[in-house]
Protein backbone atom coordinates (compact mmCIF):
# COMPACT_ATOMS: atom_id res chain seq x y z
CA UNK A 1 0.00 0.00 0.00
CA UNK A 2 1.22 3.48 -0.86
CA UNK A 3 -0.03 6.25 1.39
CA UNK A 4 0.33 9.99 1.09
CA UNK A 5 -0.33 11.84 4.32
CA UNK A 6 -0.69 15.59 4.22
CA UNK A 7 1.74 15.84 1.30
CA UNK A 8 2.43 19.46 0.44
CA UNK A 9 4.84 20.73 -2.23
CA UNK A 10 5.69 24.44 -2.15
CA UNK A 11 7.86 26.47 -4.49
CA UNK A 12 8.46 29.71 -2.63
CA UNK A 13 5.04 31.28 -2.28
CA UNK A 14 3.38 28.86 -4.69
CA UNK A 15 1.62 25.81 -3.28
CA UNK A 16 1.69 23.17 -6.04
CA UNK A 17 0.39 20.30 -3.91
CA UNK A 18 -1.83 21.21 -1.01
CA UNK A 19 -1.93 18.78 1.94
CA UNK A 20 -2.96 15.72 -0.04
CA UNK A 21 -4.03 12.46 1.61
CA UNK A 22 -4.20 9.56 -0.79
CA UNK A 23 -4.17 5.78 -0.52
CA UNK A 24 -3.09 3.67 -3.46
CA UNK A 25 -3.66 -0.06 -3.03
CA UNK A 26 -0.94 -1.87 -5.03
CA UNK A 27 -1.24 -3.73 -8.32
CA UNK A 28 -3.55 -1.33 -10.10
CA UNK A 29 -3.23 1.02 -13.06
CA UNK A 30 -4.06 4.57 -11.99
CA UNK A 31 -4.78 7.45 -14.34
CA UNK A 32 -3.81 10.87 -13.01
CA UNK A 33 -5.72 13.65 -14.73
CA UNK A 34 -5.59 17.37 -14.20
CA UNK A 35 -5.33 20.61 -16.09
CA UNK A 36 -2.01 22.30 -16.83
CA UNK A 37 -0.55 23.60 -13.59
CA UNK A 38 -2.87 21.52 -11.39
CA UNK A 39 0.14 19.98 -9.60
CA UNK A 40 0.33 16.54 -11.25
CA UNK A 41 4.09 16.48 -11.82
CA UNK A 42 4.81 17.84 -8.33
CA UNK A 43 2.56 15.18 -6.81
CA UNK A 44 4.25 12.46 -8.87
CA UNK A 45 7.72 13.70 -7.86
CA UNK A 46 6.71 13.38 -4.21
CA UNK A 47 5.07 10.00 -4.84
CA UNK A 48 8.28 8.76 -6.50
CA UNK A 49 10.34 10.18 -3.61
CA UNK A 50 12.25 12.33 -6.09
CA UNK A 51 11.33 15.32 -4.00
CA UNK A 52 10.94 15.62 -0.25
CA UNK A 53 7.52 17.11 0.45
CA UNK A 54 7.55 20.56 2.08
CA UNK A 55 5.20 18.99 4.60
CA UNK A 56 3.71 15.53 5.07
CA UNK A 57 5.19 12.25 3.88
CA UNK A 58 4.79 9.27 1.57
CA UNK A 59 4.70 5.78 3.08
CA UNK A 60 5.19 2.51 1.24
CA UNK A 61 4.01 -0.54 3.17
CA UNK A 62 4.09 1.61 6.27
CA UNK A 63 7.71 2.77 5.85
CA UNK A 64 8.63 6.36 5.09
CA UNK A 65 9.56 6.33 1.40
CA UNK A 66 11.92 9.28 1.09
CA UNK A 67 15.60 8.22 0.84
CA UNK A 68 14.54 4.67 1.63
CA UNK A 69 16.82 2.49 -0.54
CA UNK A 70 14.35 -0.39 -0.66
CA UNK A 71 11.61 1.87 -1.99
CA UNK A 72 13.91 3.74 -4.39
CA UNK A 73 15.08 0.49 -6.04
CA UNK A 74 11.47 -0.48 -6.66
CA UNK A 75 10.34 2.85 -8.08
CA UNK A 76 10.66 3.94 -11.68
CA UNK A 77 9.68 7.55 -12.41
CA UNK A 78 9.71 8.57 -16.06
CA UNK A 79 9.42 12.28 -16.51
CA UNK A 80 10.03 14.77 -19.26
CA UNK A 81 13.77 15.13 -18.61
CA UNK A 82 14.28 11.33 -18.57
CA UNK A 83 17.08 12.01 -16.03
CA UNK A 84 19.67 11.00 -18.62
CA UNK A 85 22.93 12.38 -19.85
CA UNK A 86 21.91 13.81 -23.22
CA UNK A 87 25.29 13.05 -24.81
CA UNK A 88 24.90 9.32 -24.04
CA UNK A 89 23.79 6.95 -26.72
CA UNK A 90 20.46 5.12 -26.32
CA UNK A 91 22.42 1.87 -25.90
CA UNK A 92 24.33 3.37 -22.95
CA UNK A 93 21.16 4.68 -21.33
CA UNK A 94 19.68 1.17 -21.47
CA UNK A 95 22.90 -0.37 -20.08
CA UNK A 96 22.91 2.04 -17.15
CA UNK A 97 19.28 1.16 -16.40
CA UNK A 98 20.19 -2.54 -16.39
CA UNK A 99 23.01 -1.92 -13.87
CA UNK A 100 20.88 0.22 -11.59
CA UNK A 101 17.73 -1.85 -11.61
CA UNK A 102 17.62 -5.33 -10.10
CA UNK A 103 14.32 -6.07 -11.85
CA UNK A 104 15.42 -4.84 -15.32
CA UNK A 105 14.38 -7.19 -18.16
CA UNK A 106 16.92 -6.73 -20.95
CA UNK A 107 15.09 -9.02 -23.39
CA UNK A 108 11.89 -7.10 -22.91
CA UNK A 109 13.75 -3.79 -23.34
CA UNK A 110 15.18 -5.09 -26.62
CA UNK A 111 11.70 -6.11 -27.74
CA UNK A 112 10.32 -2.65 -26.97
CA UNK A 113 13.23 -0.96 -28.77
CA UNK A 114 12.27 -3.09 -31.75
CA UNK A 115 8.55 -2.30 -31.44
CA UNK A 116 9.29 1.44 -31.41
CA UNK A 117 12.05 1.07 -34.01
CA UNK A 118 14.45 3.06 -31.87
CA UNK A 119 18.03 3.35 -33.12
CA UNK A 120 20.17 2.46 -30.08
CA UNK A 121 23.29 4.01 -31.68
CA UNK A 122 21.72 7.47 -31.61
CA UNK A 123 22.61 9.96 -28.93
CA UNK A 124 19.77 10.89 -26.59
CA UNK A 125 20.21 14.53 -27.63
CA UNK A 126 19.51 13.69 -31.27
CA UNK A 127 16.21 11.89 -30.63
CA UNK A 128 13.00 13.56 -31.78
CA UNK A 129 10.45 14.49 -29.11
CA UNK A 130 8.44 11.36 -29.86
CA UNK A 131 11.51 9.08 -29.86
CA UNK A 132 12.55 10.55 -26.52
CA UNK A 133 9.16 9.60 -25.13
CA UNK A 134 9.53 6.09 -26.59
CA UNK A 135 12.87 5.72 -24.82
CA UNK A 136 11.13 6.84 -21.62
CA UNK A 137 8.48 4.14 -22.08
CA UNK A 138 11.19 1.50 -22.65
CA UNK A 139 13.02 2.61 -19.48
CA UNK A 140 9.78 2.70 -17.51
CA UNK A 141 8.27 -0.62 -18.57
CA UNK A 142 11.44 -2.73 -18.80
CA UNK A 143 12.40 -1.71 -15.26
CA UNK A 144 9.40 -3.79 -14.08
CA UNK A 145 9.42 -1.67 -10.94
CA UNK A 146 6.80 -2.35 -8.26
CA UNK A 147 5.83 1.32 -8.64
CA UNK A 148 6.08 2.63 -12.19
CA UNK A 149 5.19 6.27 -12.77
CA UNK A 150 4.85 7.59 -16.31
CA UNK A 151 4.39 11.36 -16.43
CA UNK A 152 2.93 12.31 -19.81
CA UNK A 153 5.14 9.72 -21.46
CA UNK A 154 3.34 10.05 -24.79
CA UNK A 155 4.51 13.60 -25.62
CA UNK A 156 5.36 13.95 -29.29
CA UNK A 157 4.41 10.37 -30.11
CA UNK A 158 2.30 9.94 -33.23
CA UNK A 159 -0.99 8.01 -33.11
CA UNK A 160 0.68 4.74 -34.11
CA UNK A 161 3.39 5.02 -31.45
CA UNK A 162 0.79 5.83 -28.79
CA UNK A 163 -1.28 2.82 -29.81
CA UNK A 164 1.82 0.63 -29.48
CA UNK A 165 2.60 2.20 -26.12
CA UNK A 166 -0.89 1.46 -24.72
CA UNK A 167 -0.82 -2.07 -26.14
CA UNK A 168 2.57 -2.86 -24.60
CA UNK A 169 1.64 -1.27 -21.29
CA UNK A 170 -1.48 -3.43 -20.94
CA UNK A 171 0.18 -6.64 -22.17
CA UNK A 172 3.09 -6.23 -19.77
CA UNK A 173 0.81 -5.31 -16.88
CA UNK A 174 -1.27 -8.46 -17.52
CA UNK A 175 1.89 -10.57 -17.48
CA UNK A 176 3.53 -8.69 -14.59
CA UNK A 177 0.90 -6.94 -12.47
CA UNK A 178 2.31 -3.96 -10.58
CA UNK A 179 1.35 -0.44 -9.57
CA UNK A 180 1.40 1.89 -12.55
CA UNK A 181 0.53 5.57 -12.36
CA UNK A 182 0.10 7.32 -15.66
CA UNK A 183 -0.60 11.02 -16.09
CA UNK A 184 -2.22 12.13 -19.30
CA UNK A 185 -4.25 14.77 -21.08
CA UNK A 186 -5.42 12.26 -23.71
CA UNK A 187 -8.26 10.89 -21.62
CA UNK A 188 -10.36 9.36 -24.39
CA UNK A 189 -7.40 7.40 -25.74
CA UNK A 190 -6.23 5.63 -22.67
CA UNK A 191 -8.95 5.66 -20.00
CA UNK A 192 -10.01 2.08 -20.79
CA UNK A 193 -6.71 0.95 -19.27
CA UNK A 194 -7.22 2.68 -15.93
CA UNK A 195 -8.72 0.79 -13.02
CA UNK A 196 -8.94 4.01 -11.04
CA UNK A 197 -8.85 7.68 -11.93
CA UNK A 198 -7.45 10.47 -9.79
CA UNK A 199 -8.38 14.01 -10.80
CA UNK A 200 -6.25 16.87 -9.47
CA UNK A 201 -7.40 20.45 -9.40
CA UNK A 202 -5.37 23.38 -8.09
CA UNK A 203 -3.13 21.26 -5.90
CA UNK A 204 -5.86 19.10 -4.42
CA UNK A 205 -7.50 15.78 -5.17
CA UNK A 206 -10.86 16.56 -6.70
CA UNK A 207 -11.86 12.95 -7.17
CA UNK A 208 -10.43 9.42 -6.76
CA UNK A 209 -12.73 6.68 -7.95
CA UNK A 210 -13.09 3.56 -10.06
CA UNK A 211 -12.92 4.59 -13.71
CA UNK A 212 -16.02 2.59 -14.53
CA UNK A 213 -18.15 4.45 -12.03
CA UNK A 214 -17.32 7.75 -13.78
CA UNK A 215 -18.61 6.55 -17.15
CA UNK A 216 -22.08 8.01 -17.55
CA UNK A 217 -21.89 9.74 -14.17
CA UNK A 218 -22.73 13.10 -15.74
CA UNK A 219 -25.90 13.50 -17.81
CA UNK A 220 -27.16 16.26 -20.09
CA UNK A 221 -30.92 16.80 -19.90
CA UNK A 222 -32.50 18.63 -22.82
CA UNK A 223 -36.06 19.77 -23.44
CA UNK A 224 -38.65 22.40 -22.74
CA UNK A 225 -37.02 24.98 -20.47
CA UNK A 226 -39.37 24.87 -17.48
CA UNK A 227 -39.49 21.08 -17.43
CA UNK A 228 -35.71 20.83 -17.59
CA UNK A 229 -35.33 23.35 -14.78
CA UNK A 230 -37.87 21.47 -12.65
CA UNK A 231 -36.16 18.15 -13.33
CA UNK A 232 -32.75 19.53 -12.36
CA UNK A 233 -33.89 20.67 -8.90
CA UNK A 234 -31.65 19.11 -6.28
CA UNK A 235 -28.90 18.17 -8.74
CA UNK A 236 -25.51 19.81 -9.21
CA UNK A 237 -25.50 21.71 -12.49
CA UNK A 238 -22.18 21.54 -14.37
CA UNK A 239 -23.15 23.33 -17.56
CA UNK A 240 -26.11 25.05 -19.12
CA UNK A 241 -27.30 26.29 -22.47
CA UNK A 242 -30.57 27.79 -23.65
CA UNK A 243 -31.96 28.47 -27.09
CA UNK A 244 -35.47 29.87 -27.31
CA UNK A 245 -37.71 27.69 -25.19
CA UNK A 246 -35.23 24.80 -25.14
CA UNK A 247 -32.79 24.32 -22.30
CA UNK A 248 -29.93 21.87 -21.86
CA UNK A 249 -28.40 21.26 -18.45
CA UNK A 250 -25.45 19.02 -17.69
CA UNK A 251 -25.94 17.45 -14.26
CA UNK A 252 -23.46 15.67 -12.02
CA UNK A 253 -24.30 12.34 -10.46
CA UNK A 254 -25.91 9.20 -11.79
CA UNK A 255 -29.65 9.62 -12.27
CA UNK A 256 -32.27 7.21 -11.03
CA UNK A 257 -33.53 5.12 -14.00
CA UNK A 258 -37.09 5.69 -12.82
CA UNK A 259 -36.59 9.47 -12.92
CA UNK A 260 -35.17 9.18 -16.43
CA UNK A 261 -38.21 7.20 -17.56
CA UNK A 262 -40.54 9.82 -16.07
CA UNK A 263 -38.52 12.59 -17.72
CA UNK A 264 -38.70 10.86 -21.08
CA UNK A 265 -42.47 10.61 -20.75
CA UNK A 266 -42.48 14.40 -20.39
CA UNK A 267 -40.46 14.76 -23.58
CA UNK A 268 -37.02 15.28 -22.00
CA UNK A 269 -34.00 13.65 -23.58
CA UNK A 270 -31.01 12.33 -21.66
CA UNK A 271 -27.45 12.08 -22.90
CA UNK A 272 -24.87 10.55 -20.56
CA UNK A 273 -21.38 12.07 -20.51
CA UNK A 274 -18.13 10.32 -21.36
CA UNK A 275 -15.12 10.62 -19.09
CA UNK A 276 -13.47 13.47 -20.92
CA UNK A 277 -16.58 15.65 -20.88
CA UNK A 278 -17.07 14.92 -17.18
CA UNK A 279 -13.44 15.91 -16.54
CA UNK A 280 -13.82 19.13 -18.51
CA UNK A 281 -16.94 20.09 -16.58
CA UNK A 282 -15.50 19.23 -13.18
CA UNK A 283 -12.23 21.11 -13.68
CA UNK A 284 -13.27 24.13 -15.71
CA UNK A 285 -13.01 27.27 -13.67
CA UNK A 286 -15.34 29.13 -16.00
CA UNK A 287 -19.01 28.40 -16.65
CA UNK A 288 -19.41 26.02 -19.56
CA UNK A 289 -22.21 25.19 -21.96
CA UNK A 290 -23.98 21.88 -21.47
CA UNK A 291 -22.28 18.89 -23.09
CA UNK A 292 -24.07 17.23 -25.94
Amino acid sequence: MIELRGVTVRYGETVAVDAIDLELPPGKIYGLLGRNGSGKTSLLSALASYRKPSAGAVFVDGEPAFENPRVVRQTSFIRDTLDLNDSDRVRTALDIASWLRPTWDADYAAKLVDVFQLDTRKRVSSLSRGQRSMLGVVLGLASRAALTILDESYLGMDAVARTLFYRELLADYLAHPRTIVLSTHLIDEVADLFERVIIMDRGRILLHDETDSLRGRGVTVTGQAERVTAFAAGHTVLGEQSLGGVRALTLDGRLDPGDILLGEREGLTFGPLGLQDLFVHLTSQQPLEASR
Binding site: L170, A171, L174, F194, E195, T211, D212
Partner: peptide, 17 residues
Amino acid sequence: TNQYAAFYRINPATAAK
Protein backbone atom coordinates in the same frame (compact mmCIF):
# COMPACT_ATOMS: atom_id res chain seq x y z
CA THR B 1 -10.57 -12.02 -17.74
CA ASN B 2 -6.97 -11.54 -18.86
CA GLN B 3 -7.72 -12.82 -22.36
CA TYR B 4 -10.77 -10.62 -22.48
CA ALA B 5 -8.82 -7.57 -21.24
CA ALA B 6 -6.04 -8.12 -23.79
CA PHE B 7 -8.51 -8.69 -26.63
CA TYR B 8 -10.63 -5.62 -25.95
CA ARG B 9 -7.75 -3.49 -24.60
CA ILE B 10 -9.37 -2.77 -21.25
CA ASN B 11 -8.26 -2.98 -17.65
CA PRO B 12 -8.55 -6.58 -16.37
CA ALA B 13 -10.29 -5.43 -13.16
CA THR B 14 -13.06 -3.93 -15.30
CA ALA B 15 -13.41 -7.19 -17.22
CA ALA B 16 -13.40 -9.17 -13.96
CA LYS B 17 -16.24 -7.05 -12.63
